[in-house]
Write a protein that binds this DNA or RNA. Structure first.
Length: 439
RNA sequence: GCCCUGGUAGUAUAGUUCGGUCUAGUAUAGGCGGCUGUCGCCCGCCCGACCCGGGUUCAAAUCCCGGCCAGGGCGCCA
């Protein structure tokens, strides 16, 4: 089918801005055909744009032949423009409809479509992700990312207000020796390089010049994980602050979470309604449990949890049942934390590291950092890492490294919490996981 | 990497227990026709599928073996 030119048409209103008060006015709307109901003498087109939808009503005998021809030619998901007169009516849920004066078909769709755009026959996640661009035309799926957008803005506003400066550290790094997660290797001219798994070392170096920094960006982990909460490419929100303790940055974190919950609740009422999801704004301060307290609690429940180890997933699920909201786990054993986390004064078996939990999900982790070069070198060796590989990083500790601390929160996990989605893939536009590299 | 479950039209499902009733049912999408107030419109007709390979059997969507793919869980995971 031949499409029309956009010409001099420009949108005057989004679908939801077409209200009964505009009765009699001429509007131009653009969008996609979501549904067609042809009753014979009268034909209804449901036009959807990113904000919602509006009905275009075509009484066959009362409008020009050109309009009837266009209306009969369109199918679901065609993009069209409609210039028409707004009519107040009792016949539609939104009490308004548009009687077209002209329709322009701007984009055609191949049928059958890979999934039902009305959502009446819901497709499975795998099918949806294969046709993600189309999947995101459904308002429920779009609502997730509108919420994420508001969330990101709230984070930036909050941290900027608190005096943090937004920075960007390299995604391409030289050494794979930070320990922990597996890295993706990349070819870097004649050298081997890796995709960064975190901005940790860089953000620590940056507290020298900037004192308080934050970064929001993607990081990469080549883990074999196959769960609903792991992906290979994820967005991390990181902060690092000079002259601060673990408790100081925990307060920044809980205030941030509180702030974004309030903000999303206030600004995304419609999206939350679409998602049929609600949450309580958490009270401050969040509960704090030491690692020891948690281990005792688990042992009292006869759940297996070895002191000194990370808490196994089944045990975390139990914890989620016992503490069904936000809480911190503090004072982790040194054996379960990264080399740069500061050991606790007076008890070198423990650290000033913490995790922020939401139910059984690890939302964020952070802590005070080691600021003494000698101690950092000692810890590297204990963790069987080669200090030589960290020589550039260690240099920063020769320039007056202050006591500092920070944390990292997984943006997708926070989005899951705010949207009620149970699979992290739902809150990533084009997720990358162990078995998915496209689209 | 390990374990569990699954793979039936474009989509979503029934059928697999215990092989034959399956010429594989249903809904929705798509095609044609009808209908002037629908809003999951309705009515009639049509189109369209058993993941791939091998095996057992008179007979396989159904049982067995191998493969591929997917979902979930575990481990791993700053």
């Amino acid at each position: 089918m031949k499409t029309d030119q956009l010409g001099d048409w420009r949108r005057t209103h989004y679908s939801i801005e077409v209200t009964p008060e505009l009765d009699g006015n001429e509007v131009i709307v653009f969008g996609w055909i979501q549904d067609i109901r042809d009753l014979g003498g009268i034909l209804f087109l449901i036009l959807q744009d990113r904000e919602g939808n509006v009905q275009v009503t075509i009484p066959r005998k009362k409008v020009k032949k050109q309009i009837v021809e266009k209306a009969e030619a369109v199918q679901r998901q065609y993009s069209i423009g409609v210039k028409g007169i707004v009519k107040r009516t009792k016949m539609t849920p939104r009490k308004v409809e548009i009687i077209p004066k002209e329709i322009r078909v701007l984009g055609v769709a191949q049928h059958p479509l890979p999934l039902d755009v009305t959502g009446r026959t819901p497709a499975k996640i795998d099918v949806r992700l294969d046709a993600r661009a189309l999947d995101l035309c459904q308002q429920e799926n779009r609502a997730v990312f509108k919420i994420q957008h508001v969330l990101l803005r709230a984070i930036r506003d909050f941290l900027s207000e608190k005096g943090f400066i937004e920075v960007h550290t390299p995604r391409i790094i030289a050494t794979a020796t930070e320990g922990g997660a597996a890295l993706f290797p990349v070819k870097y001219f004649e050298n081997k390089a890796f995709l960064a798994q975190s901005p940790q070392l860089y953000k620590e170096e940056l507290v020298l010049g900037f004192e308080k920094v934050f970064e929001i960006g993607p990081f990469f982990r080549a883990e074999e994980s196959h769960t609903r909460r792991h992906i290979s490419e994820f967005i991390s929100v990181d902060i690092e602050q000079a002259f601060a303790t673990a408790e100081d940055v925990m307060q920044v974190l809980e205030q941030l979470v509180h702030h974004v919950c309030e903000d999303v609740k206030a600004r995304c009422r419609r999206e939350l309604e679409i998602l049929k999801h609600d949450f309580e704004v958490p009270k401050l301060p969040f509960k704090r449990f030491t690692y020891d307290e948690i281990i005792v609690e688990l042992q009292n429940k006869n759940v297996e949890a070895q002191w000194g180890e990370d808490i196994p997933t089944p045990a975390l699920r139990t914890l989620g049942g016992l503490h069904p909201y936000f809480y911190f786990i503090t004072d982790w054993p040194i054996t379960a934390r990264a080399f740069y986390i500061k050991p606790k004064d007076g008890n070198p078996k423990l650290t000033e590291g913490f995790d922020l939990m939401w139910h059984w999900i690890e939302l964020a982790s952070g802590g005070s950092r080691i600021s003494s070069k000698d101690l950092l070198v000692k810890r590297l060796r204990e963790c069987e890492l080669n200090p030589e590989s960290f020589k550039h990083h260690l240099k920063a500790f020769d320039y007056g490294m202050p006591p500092h601390g920070g944390w990292a929160i997984g943006l997708e996990r926070l989005t899951m919490m705010l949207t009620g989605k149970k699979n992290i893939r739902e809150v990533v536009l084009f997720p990358r996981d162990r078995f998915r590299l496209t689209p």
